[in-house]
């Protein structure tokens, strides 16, 4: 555990080195938030879609932007760089598991980057008028379940990123594979279009996939679109997905590591 905390701390320190990155991230998130809210307000002229009000939609978008780094599937540049360059050899000579090293690096980066970005976005969006701003959570229970599901969702997001790491490790190329995983999970997870606004038949498909549990579920618990008892069931399903995807990732990375040839030098 101590080793993983150390890795976590290191990512935090690295993240703090990049202030410009954090500021530009915040600015981008604001821009996207306003853009998406204007867009969907225009579409939702009759005020309610599938029991989803404009103010709920605005909260959905703002929370999505505030926790964007957590929900977005990507690879750390250092990870793809070390795999392609062969520097990953050093990960093999450490007395800890390869998968766990990558997992804690990504988790550390996601959490630290989020911590640097979300407070400002949340505060400002709370100050906006309720039709375009963030509303308070529907209840304290909902808020606590939101936190819990956000934590599980973040772990799930990292677990899915590990599948992308596997693809890079396998193909030794960080293009294509990662973009594919990232786009698919974003589309099916509600990053681009809020899931409640999707047509019913697409919602039916999306509900059977793991991606919606990353950020769609926590946000909908917060805005009251998913009730408390439903929330508990869904968090349970999310944990099951998490366990399954972690096991899959571990098996795949272990198998690849066995055959890996660290080149050069």
């Amino acid at each position: 555990m101590r080793s993983y905390l150390g890795i976590f701390k290191m990512q935090f320190k690295s993240e703090l080195q990049y202030r410009a990155k954090a500021w530009s991230g915040i600015a981008t998130q604001f821009f996207w938030g306003i853009l998406l809210i204007s867009l969907y307000t225009a579409f939702m002229a009759n005020d309610q879609v599938n029991g989803f009000s404009i103010s709920q939609m605005a909260s959905y978008i703002w929370l999505g932007q505030a926790f964007f780094v957590m929900r977005y599937i990507y690879l750390l540049p250092s990870t793809s760089e070390e795999i392609v360059s062969g520097n990953v050899g050093y990960k093999f000579v450490r007395p800890i598991n390869l998968y766990n090293q990558w997992f804690s690096e990504h988790l550390g980066q996601k959490v630290s980057a989020t911590l640097l970005r979300f407070p400002l976005i949340i505060i400002i969006s709370l100050l906006l008028p309720s039709t375009i701003g963030l509303s308070l959570p529907v209840s304290i229970t909902a808020f606590l379940l939101f936190i819990l599901s956000l934590i599980v969702g973040t772990l799930l997001s990292v677990a899915i990123s590990m599948l992308a790491v596997y693809l890079v490790f396998k193909t030794l190329s960080d293009r294509g594979a990662v973009t594919l995983v990232s786009t698919i999970s974003g589309l099916l997870g509600g990053t681009y279009i809020p899931i409640p606004l999707m047509p019913d038949f697409i919602q039916d498909i999306v509900n059977y996939l793991p991606f919606r549990y990353i950020s769609d579920l926590p946000i909908r618990i917060y805005i009251g679109n998913v009730g408390i008892s439903d929330a508990l069931v869904h968090i349970g399903i999310c944990i099951a997905w998490l366990v399954a995807i972690v096991i899959l990732g571990k098996i795949l990375i272990k198998a690849t590591a066995k055959k890996a040839v660290i080149q050069g030098g």
């Binding site: 890795i7 450490r94 007395p95």
Partner: peptide, 9 residues
């Protein structure tokens, strides 16, 4: 170095 210290306990 501090991280290596943690990794190697």
């Amino acid at each position: 170095f501090e991280l290596l210290k943690d990794i190697y306990k």
